[in-house]
Every structure is written in structure tokens, then in C-alpha cells.
Design a protein around this nucleic acid. Sequence first.
DNA 1: GGAATGCAGTGACCAAAGTCACCGGACTCA
DNA 2: TGAGTCCGGTGACTTTGGTCACTGCATTCC
Lengths: 207, 207
Amino acid sequence: MDALHSKLPSLPLSLREEILTMGIRQAVPAGTELLREGQYVKVIPLVLDGLVKVFSRYEDRELLLYYIEPVESCVMSFSAGLWNLPSKVFAITEEESDLLLLPVQHVNEWVRKYPTLNQLFFGQFNKRYEDLLFTIHQVLFQRMDERLLTYLRERADRLGTNLLDLRHHQIARELGTAREVISRVLKKLEQEKWVIQHQHGIEVVTR
Amino acid sequence: MDALHSKLPSLPLSLREEILTMGIRQAVPAGTELLREGQYVKVIPLVLDGLVKVFSRYEDRELLLYYIEPVESCVMSFSAGLWNLPSKVFAITEEESDLLLLPVQHVNEWVRKYPTLNQLFFGQFNKRYEDLLFTIHQVLFQRMDERLLTYLRERADRLGTNLLDLRHHQIARELGTAREVISRVLKKLEQEKWVIQHQHGIEVVTR
DNA sequence: GGAATGCAGTGACCAAAGTCACCGGACTCA
DNA sequence: TGAGTCCGGTGACTTTGGTCACTGCATTCC
């Protein structure tokens, strides 16, 4: 339970203690939906461990916007929670994750009482803003082969392995396209020696 | 000079006075570049009057991200200014505009001294986050005809007129596409009676 | 063993959008 | 008045990516 202290050393001790008493610690399995479009939010989740994906959805297509890594939070939940607005994205745990749920009324107090908390929130907003900029860039200016390779490399970096256990249809959903497209492009990337497709995974060739 | 008082009544009087003494009031003509990619920022501009466009650029294509309207600011300048990071977007005045330039070191103090200022900053971050979400949505999930019509309507609403004086190539740049595409799609929209093209402008047909 | 299921491969086709080349009208300005 | 420039229109073509239909594996589960 002292994880918070080591992970957020920048916050005042008294705030960390308040957070620990008021916050609800929760372990959630992989694949749990944390936030749905149109939903109102009463707790702000802080990811202590694990990984959460944030998506935009339209009809039956979706697009991965960004990942929330440990000791980060979801800015959509800030605005949705603090101003009681409906969410415009949905979020799902990618791995089994350890969350700290912060009830919004307390967060409202803390923001007033502890100005340093604002620094943290600003940082999060800024990170997500940059993530979205990057995503826009990819979607508008890059072709599928580039986007796919960037996606695979980013994932390999994050997981610390070149062997990615991924289904084509998973990739397609995250990139907002169709399974066949991924199969086709992946084959092209393989011919160009950027990746190797094994029976149970895709190997990203190190440069 | 009392514009600020009437326009930002939510801020404490003493802060507004500080802003007025430390901020630099500046009128800039239309088409002035305020922020360039890679640039470091020493003042945070607050738009008092006029209109500023914010773009993402890649090679020789660009994409309009959002507009900054009166009594709004640019979140890219927050992060670029307050953390001394290079900008990833560029901004240009669309109309002649009246700006209030806030030197970053003072803003840093104000943020600490006046917690209400944080509310304003949060609001701005949230607005831009939503703008970017909307843009992603348009770019990935909508076809050009939809995007173009949405763009024209939004613009007509903002300017309060159905008659838009726009060049095809301007539109193309803002939507990140080519002039010919706009010409083609505009013709289709005209055939479908959504717009009428006049000699000197495009009329958006009211629904 | 056989049916069902999930996954990937693939060819054919289509639609959207990007590109190229070229035209002609309007306007400007020297 | 004639050259230059800006603007929009357009046909032809290409590329990219989305869709459809169908195949062949594995694996799993009765």
C-alpha cells in the first residue's frame, strides 16, 4: 500500500495520506471496460500498475488514442468527473491492472487544498494533448504501412520484446481499419524485411 | 483597457490588475504567424479580440486543428511556455486580432498565487482536448463531403453569415487535402443542393 | 473422429481521394 | 492591350484502403 508514496513522491505527504484513506484500491482483470461513451463519472481512476487503453469509437470502427501507464490517469475522467460531463471515449484494461479510484468530490477539495496536484493534472492534460496530436498526424499524414510499423515498434518498445503476440484483427481494431488490410500490409512489411510473422506472433526486426 | 475586466469576471480583481500591468497589449494584423513548430515560447498569448487558427503541418500538407476565439488561449503555449518545450503546432491570426501577451515567468507566479487561474487553464486544456478528439473523428471516420460540409457550416455559424468568401485552395489547406478534391466535392455538394457557389463566395444552404 | 470455431491468406472488386495536365475566365498592372 | 497571375473546372489515371467471398489450417470440444 506504500506504492503510492514511492510512485508519487512529488505530492505532499498529507495529500498522499488523504488519497490513501479516501481512495479505493481495486485490482481489475484484463479486458475490463472502465469508461464508456456518454457515461458520467464519479471516480477518477489512477493506474498504479498494469495498462489501460483509451479508444474513440464510431459505428463499428474504433481507434486507439493512447495508453495510460502506471501512475498516470485519464484526462477524460477529469473533465467528465469534475464538471459532470459525459465521456466521449471509452477505456479498457489491456492487462490486469491495479487502480486507485478517487471519488470526484474529494478530488475537487484536493485541487483547492494542494496546488501541487494541479501540476500533476496539467502534466496529464499536456501528455494526452500530445498523444492526440501524434495520433492525428499518423491518421492523416501516414499510410497504413508506416502506421502499422510505428504501432508495432511502439508496442515492442513498451513491452520490451520484439516478439508480439497479436491477432491481425486486434491490430485492425486499434488502428481503425479492417483485418484484411492488416494481413495485406503485414505481408508487404514481411517482404520488405521489417517484420517476420511466426506461428504465434509477429517479430519486429531490429534496425 | 477595461476589456479584460468584463471578459474575465471570474478572475480575482487583483489578478486582473496584475495581468493588465504585466501583460503586453498588442494588435496584430490578419495572417501573422504567432507560433511556429519547434519554437520556444516566452509569452502566453490571450486572444482578447479577433481569431487565431492553430495548425499541424507535415511536409507540404497542413491540417486545421482548432480556432482560438476571444478570451481563449493556446494550450500549446502553456506547455511550451511553462515547461520550456518546443511547440508542435503553428498558429496564425485569421483576422486582425487584439492580443494580451503574458510573460511566462509571471504566469508561473500567478498560477501559484491565484488558484482560480487553474480553473481557466483546465478549461482550456479540456476544450482543446475535445477539439482534437473531434478532428480525429472527422479525419478518420468521415468522408471528404461530410468533412467539408461540417467545416463550411461551422464556419458559417461562427461568422454569422451563410455567404463564405473562401478560395478552394484555402479550404484544401485547412482540411489537409488538395485543391482539386475540394473543387470536385464542392461541385457534388452543389448538385445535392447543400451549397451554392457564387462568383465571390460559397453559400451554405440553410436547412 | 467429426463438427464447430477462430485465425490468417488471398483474389477480385470498388470507392475515395490524391495526382497530373491542361483549359479558360477574370483581374491586374505595366 | 497584352502579359502575367490567380482561380476554378475537368478528364484521365493511380494509389490506397475497404469489402466480399471463399479457402485452408489449427485447435477445441463433444
